[in-house]
Design a protein around this nucleic acid. Structure first.
Lengths: 214, 214
DNA sequence: AAACTTATGGCAGCTACTGACAGATGACAA
DNA sequence: TTGTCATCTGTCAGTAGCTGCCATAAGTTT
C-alpha cells in the first residue's frame, strides 16, 4: 500500500531516501497544480527540495514518473485483490469487485492520501503530456491484467485473445470514467469512486448489446 | 486519399513542397526501419534529404508526426466511409463495414502504397515511443469517432456515454489486432487486413458475454 | 577508526524542439 | 523583363529533458 515513511527497522540511509522521494513528489505535485505540468521544469522541482537535477533522475525515470509511480501503488492493490478473488467468478465480476475494493480503500483513506489522490487526478487530466503517460501506463497494466485473467480463465495468453480483450476493454472503461470525472471537475476520492462505478454500470448495459450486433 | 504527387493544376512551389515532404517521409521511414525509430536522429533524416533541421519541423510537428501523418490519411477514409453508412445500421455494423472498406482499399492498393503501409506497421510496432504516439493519436480519433456515432445515434455526446464507450472499445479492439500482427510478424496489407477482421470477430463473440456478467 | 558500500553533486554532452531574423525563391502584375 | 510581394528556407541561439562519468560526501559494517 502507500507507505508514507519507513518504519523503525530500516536504517538512516533508507529513511533519508524515503524522505527525499516524498519531498520531491510533493514539491512536484504542488508545482504541477500551481502552474501546470508542462510549464514546470525539473530545475524548479529540485530547487524546491534543494537537491541536484541529477538526483531527481536517480529517483524518477522522468518527469512523468513522479505521477505514474503513485498510480502504480493503487494498481498494486487492485491487482493483488483481483488475484485473491474466487476462481469461479466470471472475469468481469472479479474485475468489478477488485476495482470496488480499491475505490473503497481510497474513499476511506486518511486526509493525506485523499489529498494526494485528488491532486494526482487533477493534475493528470489537465495535462496532455500526462494523459499520454497515463495511456502508456495503462497499456503496461493491460498486459499484467491480461496475464492474470488468462491464468484465471485457464487459457493461453499467446493464442487466446479473450483475456486481452477483456483486460483492454475494462481499462478503457476505467479511463473513460476518469476522463468523465475531469470533465465535470470531480477529483475527490468519493466523487471519483461513485462516478467510476456509474460508468462501469453503463458499460455493462451498453457493451453486450452494442457488440452483439456485429 | 493518399496523394502521392500534386496534379498539374498546382504551382511549382506547391509541387516542391510535396516532393520535400515525401522525401522526408521516405528517408525517415527507411532510417527507422534500418536502425530503429529511437536511434534515428532528426539530423540524420534531414541529412539524407539535404534540408535544414528547421525545415523538417516546418513540415512535421515532431519526429512521431512523420508516421502519424500517414495513419491519419487512412483514418480520413475510414471516417468518411463511416459517415456515409446508412443511418439505420447499428453502430458496430457501420464500424465493421467502414473498417472493412479501408482494409479492402489497402489490400488492393498499388505497390508503393502497400510498401509504405507495411513499413509503417513494422516501424510502429517495433518502437515503444511510436506505440505511445499511436495511443495518443487513437485517443484523438476516439473523440472524432464518438462525435460521429453520437450524431448517428441521435444522442448528446456530453451526457450520454454510449457513443464514447462504443468508439473507445472499437479502437481498443483495432489496436489489439495491430499488436497481434506485430507479434506474429504480419505487416503486409492483406495479412494485416485478415488478421484485423479475425480479431474483430473474436471480439464480437467475446465481449457481449463477458460484459453481461457484470 | 579503517574499509567498504552507496548516495549525491557537478559537469559535459546529446537530442528534440522553438523563436527570431535574414536571405533565397517562386508567384504575380505592370 | 522587371519589380513587388508572399512565402519558403537556413542559420543561430536557446530551452528542456535526460544520461554518462567521475570525484566526493555520507551511511554502514567490522
Amino acid at each position: 500500500m502507500v507507505e508514507t515513511s519507513g518504519v523503525g527497522t530500516t536504517g538512516l540511509r533508507e529513511r533519508k531516501k524515503q524522505r527525499t522521494r516524498w519531498a520531491l513528489t510533493d514539491a512536484a505535485l504542488d508545482l504541477f497544480l500551481a502552474k501546470g505540468y508542462e510549464a514546470t521544469t525539473i530545475d524548479e522541482i529540485v530547487a524546491a527540495v534543494d537537491v541536484s537535477q541529477r538526483t531527481f533522475f536517480r529517483y524518477f525515470a522522468g518527469k512523468e514518473d513522479v505521477v505514474l509511480a503513485i498510480m502504480k501503488e493503487y494498481d498494486q492493490v487492485f491487482l493483488a485483490t483481483l488475484v485473491d478473488r474466487p476462481g469461479d467468478e466470471p472475469p468481469i465480476t472479479a474485475l468489478a469487485a477488485a476495482i470496488h475494493h480499491v475505490l473503497d480503500s481510497v474513499r476511506s483513506a486518511d486526509e493525506e492520501h485523499a489529498g494526494r489522490f485528488a491532486k494526482i487526478r487533477d493534475v493528470i487530466e489537465h495535462s496532455p503530456a500526462l494523459e499520454v503517460a497515463q495511456l502508456r501506463y495503462f497499456s503496461e497494466l493491460e498486459h499484467e491484467l491480461a496475464t492474470i485473467l488468462a491464468r484465471r480463465m485457464n487459457v493461453d495468453l499467446a493464442t487466446d485473445l479473450r483475456p486481452t480483450l477483456i483486460a483492454a476493454t475494462f481499462l478503457t472503461v476505467m479511463r473513460i470514467g476518469f476522463e468523465g470525472c475531469a470533465h465535470e471537475g470531480l477529483f475527490q476520492p468519493d466523487e471519483v469512486a461513485s462516478r467510476i462505478e456509474e460508468v462501469f454500470a453503463v458499460a455493462a448495459e451498453t457493451l453486450p448489446g452494442a457488440w452483439s450486433a456485429a
